[in-house]
């Protein structure tokens, strides 16, 4: 069975790689399987984790038992979860012509939750914490930093400030402000380059993994 599984995985892997030559039926078949399997995978995972695990078990909780398996008490149902299920079912109304507008209610709920969460969490973690992380002693606590760290700390403080100045569009980028914005764009370009390099290397790492699978697990050429 393991042998067949490796052959199937190799067949599908090569099918996707074949797209590098050109779009072809082998690639399309692998792609269609990927789309169907992905949709089905999340369909099942979210059913068991959220709809069954959260809603069903919450509304119809199992009895509480002790370590020996003896009955202790009945579980306490949380009927408030029914509202979530009702909102979820209303979401499916989008597929039905005529009553599709009702799916705006669960959508509004999702948007409201996300907005409320983002408003506070992003303000706390992505603004305040980042500002806090940027206000650092340039020469290290107790002046113990090396030249390497001192330059790095100056780059972090100055770079963050200059980057923020670049994103400030309410004032024309001229004079000292424009010069700072210019430094900001340099820092951002370095960031984009580094992020790009990092992404390419992560993709390369995935590619090496697949090549390793093909030549190792499948063909057995790499021991």
């Amino acid at each position: 069975m393991e042998h067949v599984a490796v052959w199937i995985a190799a067949f599908l892997t090569l099918g996707i790689i074949s797209f590098l030559y050109k779009d072809n039926p082998w690639y399309k078949l692998s792609e269609a399987i990927f789309v169907g399997i992905s949709a089905g995978y999340w369909f099942v995972v979210l059913f068991w984790d959220n709809i069954y695990g959260k809603f069903w078990v919450g509304v119809f909780p199992p009895d509480v038992v002790d370590e020996a398996g003896n009955f202790v008490s009945h579980g306490v149902p949380d009927y408030a979860l029914i509202v979530g299920a009702v909102l979820g079912v209303l979401m499916l109304a989008r597929l039905l012509p005529g009553v599709g507008w009702i799916s705006r209610w669960p959508l509004a709920f999702i948007v409201g939750c996300t907005s409320g969460l983002y408003l506070m969490n992003y303000f706390s973690s992505n603004i305040m914490r980042q500002v806090q992380g940027t206000i650092i002693p340039l020469f290290g606590i107790g002046y113990g930093a090396s030249v390497y760290e001192i330059i790095g700390n100056i780059v972090i403080v100055g770079g963050t400030f200059a980057g923020l100045v670049y994103f400030f569009f309410s004032k024309e980028h001229r004079g000292a402000f424009g010069a700072t914005a210019k430094v900001g764009i340099w820092v951002i370009m370095i960031t984009f380059g580094a992020s790009f390099g990092y992404t390419v290397m992560s993709r390369m790492s995935l590619l090496i993994g697949r090549i390793d699978f093909l030549f190792g697990d499948w063909l057995g050429l790499i021991k």
Binding site: G112, T114, L119, V131, G163, T191
Partner: peptide
Amino acid sequence: IMTFPQTAGQRAIMIGIALGLVSTSLRII
């Protein structure tokens, strides 16, 4: 590069995005 200039740039972008998200969230609410 990853530890210092990249962090500085990411931080500026992150703060900019967060400011936009906070104001958009407020507008939505």
